[in-house]
Each structure stands twice: as C-alpha cells, then as structure tokens.
C-alpha cells in the first residue's frame, strides 16, 4: 500500500515536471529521436545491403559444358560425385532440350537468330549447373573438374571466364559486411554518449532541486524515481516517433530504390527486416538507454 502511494507520487511528480520543463524534455526527446533514427536507419540499410549481397552471392555458379560424345550416364556419375562434396549446394542437369528452351527465351526479340537453333539442329551442349554454399568454394570445384580425369569429357567450364568478376564480387561483399558492422558499432557508441550527455545536462540543470529534496528528507529512491521515469518517457516517445519516421521513409523511398537497383520485388530486400521487430527493438533500446543514462546522471548528484 505504502509502495503504491510512493509509486503514484513518483509518477505524478515525473509527469508534472515533464510538462513544466517541457522545453528541456522536448530537447532531450529530439536528441534521442535523432540518434535512434540514425542507428536504426543505418542498421536497416546494412541489413538490406547484406541481403542484397547474399542474393548476389547465391547467384554465382559454375557451369560445366560436356562434349556431345559423352554419355548421359557419365554425366550423371559426375553429378553424383559432385553432390557428394560437402561444399556443393546443388547441381542441376541441363539437357539439350532445356538449353534450347533457355536459348529461345533469351532471344525472343530476334526471331531469325532464335530459329537458327531448333529441334532438328541443336548444337547446344548438355551442362551441369553447380551452386556452392559460398562463392569462395567455387575455386575448389573448378580445380576438381579441371583435373585430367575429366578433361576429355568437358568442353568448357564457365568459371574460367567469370573468375575475375567472381573474385571481385567476393571482395566487395566481404568489405561491405565488415565496414557495415564497424560503422554500426561506432554509431551505437556515439549515440549512447550523446543520449547520456543530453540526459546528464537536463538533470544538471535541476541539480539544485535534487539538493533541496535531499535536505527536506527525501530518500535517494524518492529523488531518483521521477528523473528515471522521465528518462523512460523520453525513450518511449523517441522510439515511437523514430519508428514512424523510419516507416514513412521506407514507404516513400523503397520502391524508388528497388527500381534503381533493378529488383522488381522490393520486399525481398527487406524480407528479413520486420517492421514490428524494429519498433520493439527501438522501444527496448529507448527505455534501456533512458533508464540507464538517468540512473548514472542522477547518481552523480546524490553523491
């Protein structure tokens, strides 16, 4: 009962002083909105870049084209050998008919060219399309296929043509990943410092109040309570507003970004970013930071 009365009083005091110090509260909330928004924005961007690179990496494959003299059984046995490798994710067999289909779909504009190759005359080779777990593993598959055992059977391996491109893609995506995480880490540290400093200043402006409360006989808990609660309110308000801005920004800019990147379905870019999760995380972070910063900032004045 006593606890209830105390909690009610602390809540009431906090709400009243939030309003009476509204400019100070507004400034603190704005700073929190900006920092929360910046961090979430970059995190989303990073997640998008990550899912894009993952998508790009998954598209990197290696195709082996076989001489027409090779029997289907031989090809299937190679397919099975490949599937047995731990670094191979999938192997697709492309028959002559399938290759022709692809040829046709790729050359719909130019019927003359398209019809050069037809059911009667089909020089397109049979091939295996191999995907690995990591693009880095392609090198191993390439070495394996280039060994002397298979040399007479194989017409061509696409990897040799694309090696430069694949290498560069691997480098760029790893670079983006690491730089992204380092930047996010830095942003998080910077925003914690900014939020702490802001809350510290708002409390510093009211240090006289804290001293008086103590002289009148308020317990540390009674003095701290309203300040901590105010910090929590800043956090909640900031999280809600920052989420809203982020949501609106996503609605406005994602379709344009999708067009620019040539990704038809934008949602694939952010498929692993749930907006609900963003709100919840921001709320938790906001409340956590608001509380922690207030606790530390008031402690200094309580001595």
């Amino acid at each position: 009962m006593q606890l209830f009365t105390t909690l009610t009083r602390i809540t009431k005091t906090a709400l009243i002083s939030l309003w009476r110090n509204r400019w100070l509260s507004l400034a603190a909330t704005l700073v929190m909105i900006l920092t929360l928004f910046t961090v979430s924005f970059f995190t989303c961007l990073l997640l998008m870049v990550n899912s894009t690179t993952t998508m790009l990496r998954s598209k990197v494959d290696i195709s082996v084209y076989f001489n027409d003299s090779v029997s289907n059984d031989q090809i299937f046995s190679i397919e099975n050998t490949l599937l047995a490798r731990s670094d191979v994710k999938s192997v697709d067999y492309i028959s002559k008919e399938k290759a022709l289909e692809v040829w046709r779909s790729q050359n719909t504009d130019n019927t003359q060219l398209r019809d050069i190759i037809n059911d009667a005359y089909n020089p397109l080779p049979r091939s295996l399309e191999i995907k690995t777990d990591q693009p880095e593993d392609l090198e191993g598959v390439n070495t394996f296929l280039s060994s002397t055992d298979y040399k007479p059977l194989i017409k061509e391996i696409s990897y040799r043509k694309n090696k430069d491109l694949v290498d560069r893609l691997i480098k760029i995506t790893t670079f983006i990943k690491y730089v992204g995480w380092i930047l996010s880490g830095l942003f998080v540290i910077i925003s914690i410092l900014i939020i702490y400093n802001t809350i510290r200043l708002t409390i510093y402006a009211r240090s006289e109040e804290i001293e008086i409360m103590k002289l009148v006989g308020a317990s540390d808990w009674y003095v701290q309570g309203p300040f901590i609660l105010e910090g929590v309110v800043y956090g909640i308000l900031a999280a809600i507003i920052s989420s809203l801005i982020l949501y609106l920004a996503a609605q406005l800019f994602l379709p344009a970004a999708g067009n620019y990147l040539g990704v038809a379905n934008v949602s694939t870019l952010i498929s692993n970013i749930s907006f609900f999760a963003i709100i919840v995380i921001q709320l938790l972070v906001g409340i956590f930071l608001g509380t922690l910063c207030s606790v530390f900032a008031v402690k200094k004045h309580l001595k």
Partner: peptide, 11 residues
C-alpha cells in the same frame, strides 16, 4: 506538501 510526501504521509 513535498515535506509530508517524503515522510510517507497519507494523502
């Protein structure tokens, strides 16, 4: 009222 509130006086 604050002086009474900190003493846990009832409303």
């Amino acid at each position: 009222a604050f002086a009474l509130e900190v003493c846990d006086a009832p409303d």
